[in-house]
Design a protein around this nucleic acid. Structure first.
Lengths: 153, 153
DNA sequence: CACGCCTTTGTTATAATATAACATTTTATC
DNA sequence: GATAAAATGTTATATTATAACAAAGGCGTG
């Protein structure tokens, strides 16, 4: 279970990565953006925009929807988070992307999500696209099911 | 372009398939459900719930959201349509499923959608899931990009 | 430094998507 | 025809997201 891993460490690491990416991409990790990213990582599970909003509201931040959605847009554009379309949720990304493709295993029992980084899956997706003369720009894979942990219980 | 194909025929075929499926599944293709399915097929492209609602309203049907959403739920349950999560849209399904998995190529230029029925893709998805000890129950693949037709123009 | 420009944030309002909850009607079955 | 189950009608509201415009902040250049 994730409680056992070094969770503070993974939040910290995510923020450091974000700083780095922002320097590379010549953009700014402003306080709001940083705080939203931090909240996403702290939750560790897919989180909803309005839940982020509620958490921000209890702090020093302005509590209007555009605040959160702008931050989310920024983080998505810079591949720091992904949106899980089938849930209207957002989750941190700790893989190294050159694209904003997102590929997930989503456990419907514990709600944990695992990002897939399998080159083989990417290759297959490219192949089947090419076969249809299709040029992919953005791939979204969401596999729902039961994770190993939950299957045991 | 799809205008060239026998579009009436494909709508008709879809309705016939629906009748058949409903007999198999021991459920009923009521007038509202049938009309919603027909509208989805007539549009031929991904269509939004409220667009369906607007079309129904100009007819003899009750024009409230639950009407449409119930019909959509029914059609999805019986694998007669799919929901495209990244667009909040619905599209007819003319492949033979035993599951409600959905795998699409989505052209962001002309908005046409092609359903993928590649066994190889399914195998690869199963493989990468298994590798993580994950048991899939529902697969959703949405590849955005540019179709062959649009790439030429 | 001050000016202008661009980015970011604040603010109000509203759009778009979807469901809850309960009443009524229809259908199937006995 | 009584009754239970399925489907539909109805009202209200929840959830998710964006438009539009104003104000503030950062920054490069003369």
């Amino acid at each position: 279970m994730w409680q056992k891993h070094k969770h503070n460490a993974c939040v910290k690491q995510a923020l450091q990565k974000a700083e780095k990416i922002c320097i590379e991409n010549k953009c700014k990790l402003t306080p709001t953006r940083k705080r939203v990213l931090e909240l996403i990582w702290k939750s560790h599970k897919p989180i909803k925009a309005y839940d982020l909003l509620a958490q921000l509201s209890s702090e020093d931040f302005v509590e209007k929807p555009p605040t959160v959605y702008r931050a989310l847009d920024f983080l998505i554009e810079n591949n720091l988070i992904h949106r899980i379309e089938s849930q209207n949720t957002y989750i941190g990304c700790n893989t190294n992307h050159d694209t904003s493709d997102s590929k997930f295993l989503i456990c419907d029992s514990c709600n944990e999500v695992e990002e897939l980084v399998e080159p083989k899956l990417q290759r297959t997706l490219n192949e089947v696209s090419k076969k249809q003369g299709f040029t992919p720009s953005l791939v979204n894979v969401e596999v729902h099911g039961i994770c190993a942990q939950c299957a045991q219980n």
